[in-house]
Design a binder for these strands. Sequence first.
DNA 1: CTGTTAGCGCTTTCAA
DNA 2: TTGAAAGCGCTAACAG
Lengths: 343, 343
Amino acid sequence: MKKVKRTTIYDIAAKLGITASSVSRALNNSNQVNEKTRELIMKTADELNYKRNTLASNLRKGQSKTIGIVVPRINQNFFSNVIAGIEEATYQKGYNLIICQSNELHDKEIQCVNTLINQHVDCIVISVSADGNDYQHLQNVIDHGIQLIQFDRVADELETLKVINDNEQASFEAVSHLIEGGYKRIGLLEGPQNLAIFKQRKLGYLRAFKAYNVPVIDELIVENAWTKELGAAGTRKLLNLPHPPDAIFASTSDFSALGVLEVASAMGIKVPAELGVLGYANESFSEITSPSITTIDQFSFYMGNTVANLFFQELENTDTKTKPKIISIKPELIIRASTSKNK
Amino acid sequence: MKKVKRTTIYDIAAKLGITASSVSRALNNSNQVNEKTRELIMKTADELNYKRNTLASNLRKGQSKTIGIVVPRINQNFFSNVIAGIEEATYQKGYNLIICQSNELHDKEIQCVNTLINQHVDCIVISVSADGNDYQHLQNVIDHGIQLIQFDRVADELETLKVINDNEQASFEAVSHLIEGGYKRIGLLEGPQNLAIFKQRKLGYLRAFKAYNVPVIDELIVENAWTKELGAAGTRKLLNLPHPPDAIFASTSDFSALGVLEVASAMGIKVPAELGVLGYANESFSEITSPSITTIDQFSFYMGNTVANLFFQELENTDTKTKPKIISIKPELIIRASTSKNK
DNA sequence: CTGTTAGCGCTTTCAA
DNA sequence: TTGAAAGCGCTAACAG
């Protein structure tokens, strides 16, 4: 690939015998420029196949019209939907997205954040990785005057804009649904408790028991069961108990619920008659398993939209006194076959 | 968010009573700098929380260490996997990704490409949208001296680097599998024929018939059935024929195969006994439907990796004479329950 | 309405 | 090994 000399505003200016400032003004739709010269400039720019050098422009203006996104995994339904939601709302305002993935590794997350700071992004949107709980790098973002927005998996201790799901309430409603459906011994597959979202889901689980005056059975709670494989292992453990559960809430994801389904099927246990199964995230597959999985929709695309709008709102908001906003999106329980004991 | 004055190399230089050039040299690991001054500079940089301004650096160097990606949809399994594959390979070399989605709209695709040119990206990786077949904007990329790599959905007429799947062969093997499995009347759900990938899949379908000396039945070919809904509609039409097919190859995607499954189930037609079903893309759900769907894996993550490596290879390759490389990845037929007539 | 001028932060040649 | 100086392409304050 050989180096190509690109057309600059100087080339256009030279060709028309005017100065670069006029060209710049015309190109930026300033009204400080004669209508005829503008037309001429536009025409010439087009002829010379001029493309603005955003790098130079941004350097000069001290902003980048770029938003950096850091997620654990790009190719995970929830995250790619959030990103798509952000993209939709920001693109039309002329913003670009730089996307990084942390692979759930704290060190890579730090690297990503630093790269984004270097890039002078206007805003960093992040869902923190499961690994590690030191947030110096995020404090750093703030110190550099970059807007920081956390979503879904947030570091509570950091005072920033946040867009979260009401995990606790969703979880409460899910477990209530199980109890009302006649399930008595409800097991929980929980996620890493250093992530607030999983802690909240557990709290919702516990609150439901209290609300219905049902005692919590500790041995039915399985730690760290947040993949399909770990979910399956946890289920195997639960179902081999002297008093096995009659329902399992896979609070981490539908993948882990899938693990439950597979183990149950292998052990000849009927879902939902003998075992209720409830997942989380409304993955596309959850409606086509057999039986279909009752789950919780997180409105991921909408979440991305919300993040973007929050950013634009704060951009206009000059009042720095106000406390950083926290927007909570209420997830929705989607009832399907896997929890319909009495049908 | 108030403006924060960031530390620059001048701040570091001033504090140490040296010039910015030395600081720059130290920060760039030049060996033209005294070991002691380097250490001092590094230490001070750290103290002042210095972060390089990549914008300025790139402007000066005339490159951006950034790769632009344009895909129809970010939140589609295949594409997000390819992106993840690209990310993995480029991140460790210090490249950033700017990701745009065209939403299958030709106009938005043009906009995306122009934005990326403006950003002075070093390379544009694109899978073209289904809509439109004018490729002036891609020619433009080349004219601006930016490396262009097409993948999966490529514009054949453009001589660029390409990473594609051997769709024709995969399709051929898939249909051969159906024929050998005892299916006689095999229907085809085809995609928009202006996209080469769908044309190739149809060719493979036709070639299989020829290879086995089976006549092609035109009425079993349904145009433009590339979503779940369109796939379902096409299936309804096929199954209501006087001589309905005994197998359907949903060559566009597993989503459309899902549509087939649902219609068959609604009509009480047994899969695979009465109807064989074959999808495309090996979406995560395809192994958990009932019956599980026989499909074709495209190695999307690996495809992303390949794209990235191709870019780096060309970066080193100064020889511009050679024809642009086309790398073809052979997809793999994954045989599952939906085509096992005799079991 | 247009031109002049300075400078965003960095790299790189040339000279010392 | 270090410094001086120029300039990447663009914008914006100021002057005319």
